[in-house]
Simulated assay, not measured.
Amino acid sequence: MKILVLGSAAGGGFPQWNCNCHNCAGVRAGDPRFRARTQSSIAISADGVHWALINASPDILAQLKQHPELQPARMLRDSGISAVILVDAQIDHTTGLFMLRERASQLPVWCTEPVHQDLTTGNPVFGVLQHFCGVDWHPLRADPPTPFSLPELPDLRFTPVALASQPPPFSPRRGRAHREDNIGLLVEDLRSSRKLFYAPGLGAIEPHLDEFLAQADCIMVDGTFWTDDEMIRLGLSRKTAREIGHLPQSGGDGMIARLSPYASARRILIHINNTNPILDSASHERRMLQNADIEVAFDGMKIEL
């Protein structure tokens, strides 16, 4: 299995267009401790030709330009993207669908029923795309987890897993969460039996997740915030990380502590907010991650399982 990190930042990217925090200022100043990042998305393949795009970020065109392996050039109009899998309906994971509208046939999109509802009502992305390439929607079930495969990637099996979350702010169901508003994915290479667990939006590690985390060879999960009050302390929000839907890294019940039972797996943080001090490669917080043997994803990172 080939895993390509197209983007590793949270919504807004890094640097964020209107932010002058310590981290964003460091990128603009050319400080080598900081590395610019686009908004979170990965691509997965078994053969290096056919790829599943996991989330379509607003930066998708720039990401595709950086990765020629996603353009096999077999005909005049072509793409290595065989299908798109959405883990939620958030703007930073779905806006890029608009950029794929020139596709010659309907765009195959796999997502849960609640996500489909939000993308046809509160933010009618799918309705807009019907005026262009159209959408070939495939419903997936995460509660209970129901495995599926993609026609052009038969060697990979995807198992969606429901995560505790809230629907997006534009959702007609805001405040009335559904178990399938946000999912994680266990991806297995059927040839090697190697597995990836991917969850860029992880607000809590619930008991039912243990069986999926325990069998993964690589765990790539939410790295949005370092502390629960990060945005409050900076005066950027009145909500904690957990209230926004993200498990912070620090603290006795934070991501670092919760990932410690799975030390045999390669553990990587993705979807990193521009305010998070781990974006400073020389920071104390980054050293703490290194001491815990936890990596920080970056754009262009390649993993083979």
Rank of each mutant, 00 (worst) to 15 (best):
R179I: 00
I54A: 08
G235A: 11
D229H: 01
C218A: 11
W110A: 14
D253F: 13
E285Y: 10
D253T: 15
G30C: 13
P68R: 04
P160F: 00
R179Y: 07
W17H: 04
R141Y: 07
L97G: 14
F170I: 00
R266H: 12
P144M: 05
N274A: 04
P124E: 12
E230K: 07
L186M: 08
Y198N: 09
T120A: 04
L247A: 10
A241H: 12
P169F: 10
C111T: 13
L140S: 09
A29K: 10
W17R: 03
I272H: 02
D155F: 07
S105F: 15
R74L: 05
A73F: 09
R286C: 11
S171L: 01
L209T: 07
R74H: 13
R173D: 15
R176H: 07
L196Y: 15
R233C: 07
A199S: 13
S57R: 08
V87L: 10
T224Y: 03
L279A: 09
Q16M: 13
E206F: 03
V128L: 06
A297Y: 15
A9C: 10
E230N: 06
R179W: 06
H93I: 09
G252Y: 05
E230H: 05
G122F: 04
S57I: 00
R286M: 13
F158G: 05
C133D: 08
D47E: 05
T159W: 12
D189R: 07
G251I: 03
E188V: 01
S283A: 14
E243K: 10
L53V: 15
P169K: 11
V27K: 03
H116N: 06
R266L: 14
M220P: 00
G26V: 00
L269K: 10
V49A: 00
P58V: 02
L64S: 01
V221D: 12
N123H: 15
A36L: 11
P32Y: 11
A214S: 13
M301G: 00
L64Y: 06
P68S: 06
I42G: 04
P72A: 12
N23R: 03
D280W: 08
E102Y: 12
S193R: 09
D31P: 12
R101W: 01
I244N: 12
G223L: 06
G223T: 12
A43C: 02
G96R: 04
G13Y: 11
W51H: 05
S192W: 06
F126V: 06
N276R: 04
F225K: 12
Q290W: 06
